[in-house]
Design a protein around this nucleic acid. Sequence first.
DNA 1: ATAAGGGCACCGC
DNA 2: CGCGGTGCCCTTA
Length: 103
Amino acid sequence: MERLNFAGRVLLLCKKIPKGKVTTYKILAEAAGRKNAYRAVGTILKKNKNPKDIPCYRVVKSSGHVGNYSLGIRKKIKLLRRDGIPVVGEKIKNLERFLFTFR
DNA sequence: ATAAGGGCACCGC
DNA sequence: CGCGGTGCCCTTA
């Protein structure tokens, strides 16, 4: 973990988000050791080639809005709902209840 | 090496 | 609640 670069840690942590839960770009950035690099997290996730192996769709905006996704927002919403996350419009209902904070 | 910009956050209105 | 401006950092060109 320590020997991986920021991008590596972000992806690794991303894989740890349990099904039925989501986290935010900010929380993920902090968990990866760069509290203010939340913007870079998006850049890293979009480069993820194996959505199969890395559930990057479980990372959303802290506002509750689902945020963007390399395969399209529609797709992201579908995947989230498939996990049991309530999405209304483009926003997650009661985000606090499904938030995973790596604790 | 350097500049540009994005899967964002936060604040004011 | 939404839109716009500003800040921030890493990755990508």
